[in-house]
Design a protein around this nucleic acid. Structure first.
Length: 121
RNA sequence: GGAGUAGACUAAAUGGUCGCUGGGUCUCUGGUUUGAGAUUCAGAGGAAAGUCCGAGCUCCACAGGGCAGGGUGGUCGCUAACAGCGACUGGGGGUGACCCCAAGGAAAGUGCCACAGAAAACAUACCGCCCCGAGCAUGUCGAGGGGUAAGGGUGAAAAGGUGAGGUAAGAGCUCACCAGUAUCAUGGGUGACCAUGGUAGCUUGGUAAACCCCACCCGGAGCAAGACCAAAUAGGAGAGUGUGAAGAACUUUCUUCUUCGCAGGGUUGCCCGCCCAAAGGCUCUCGGGUAGGUCGCACGAGGCGUUUGGCAACAGGCGUCCCAGCUGAAUGACCAUUGCCUGAUGUCCUUGCAUCAGGAACAGAACUCGGCUUAUUGUCUGCUCCAGCU
RNA sequence: GGAGAGAUGACCGAGCUGGCCGAAGGUGCACGAUUGGAAAUCGUGUGUUCCGUCACAAACGGGACCGAGGGUUCGAAUCCCUCUCUCUCCG
């Protein structure tokens, strides 16, 4: 399997999973995102996304979610292993460029990675 | 050239790297389902939006009819249906192209018409005009009685308009013309209605997006509909089994039947004993059913082309194509090139060409269709008005 | 995705069988009375914006605004249509 793939089993899809990650996970916050992480028993990490209506209309919400998925797909090697990660977007996230978004998330999720990964660009 | 009006089309393209979803084919694992890999094909819209209407479809209800409630409202047609569409009629707006109209009934009945005004609909006449006139101060006097809707002012709206006759003053009281209503005839049109002519009474306020009347239509809820599979836990029903006690059958034991209760965990496997907990035995079956999953779910009032009928909406024939199917929700991220638009600069009389910079809207399927409404990019075409040149 | 309810001054909230409604009432705010001072109480006032009078302000007069835009009507917060926003319910 390619190292940059993103299958269905790598997503958080159940409401009960979201609630346990919210309640028991480690919560951190940046200017435009809230991040909750919780170790799981699987061999891989999973990603869950929440984008409220305050971000914008459906087109802008989908745009934010696609780019967050793209970030997760390309930075899997540097992210913590066997963790459930839930990213909640706050108002204003739709105005960021992709590079600004990567820098903001790297500060919390990839503290070892000083420079943003742009090799795939 | 400017302003406007109607309509049609469009919603950038190609390539690269890394990814997502579905269908087909092949390979591997495997008893099937499934899973993994390879390859190939396909993968948002004109509004997918708002959910304002109308249908299909599903479940529930239902003999038939009526009431209540809701909707529609010029005519003819189209349609599966519609509050939609087309053509036409009538009314209104605009210099015009053209656009807009919930456009039946107020002479079936009820209600309302604030303030102002005499009066807001059965004209009980405020001022005024006119006639009669008690009276006494004898005149520009007028208690009282009567006639009068021509004039005044109020109001959104005041009881047909103009002119003449007529009268005490006036009045459709009479006449002419005009407007309007009802009705009849003839002609045209499927019809709404139109044209022409006659007759009548002389004239009838507005409001039905107030109640209402008339004609026609409507059962309710919605894919989170609904159907199927179904873990764990708890609870329900039934069957079987073990064991204790009591009772009955029996002289007693055994055995059988009935009723009631119990069966747990730990201490090394078993027994005794001890400790903890306590009235929930154990096993199986059944049905309901939650989480979750599968179906519903994409071949359809389908698209494209062509032809016939029709002014058109649309309908029929023939040919051809299969064209998203997600579910914490795929259809993408980044980059390059070309094209488009705008601005600046250079060349040129302009069109155009070159360079640089910037821009590319509204917006994301969620069971599926037909409409409406709203948001919005660019281009083209027809027509109208104004200005200029020849 | 589907179904439903609502929007009125700074805030809450009546008015929704059309007219006397820029709009009751309460909270808040300002001023005054009371007090040595405050609280409480009592009284008065208090929306925004545009135009005019005026050198400005104040005051006075007029117009518009009941989420936004149209329509019906002589007249709309109220009736009808379209849009915007907020909230609730259905797993």
């Amino acid at each position: 399997m390619s190292p940059f793939s993103f299958k269905k089993k790598e997503r958080v899809r159940k409401r009960t999973d979201f609630i346990t990650i919210y309640n028991k996970g480690v919560k951190q916050e940046t200017q435009h995102f809230k991040i909750a992480t919780l170790p799981n028993n699987l061999q891989w990490s999973r990603l869950g996304l929440t984008v409220s209506k305050k971000v914008g209309k459906a087109v802008q919400r989908n745009y934010v979610k696609r780019r967050l998925r793209e970030y997760f797909r390309l930075h899997k090697a540097y992210l913590p292993m066997s963790c459930d990660i839930v990213i909640t977007s706050k108002s204003g996230a739709q105005k960021l460029t992709y590079v600004e978004m990567c820098q903001e998330l790297n500060a919390i999720l990839c503290p070892d990675l000083q420079m943003p990964d742009r090799t795939k660009g």
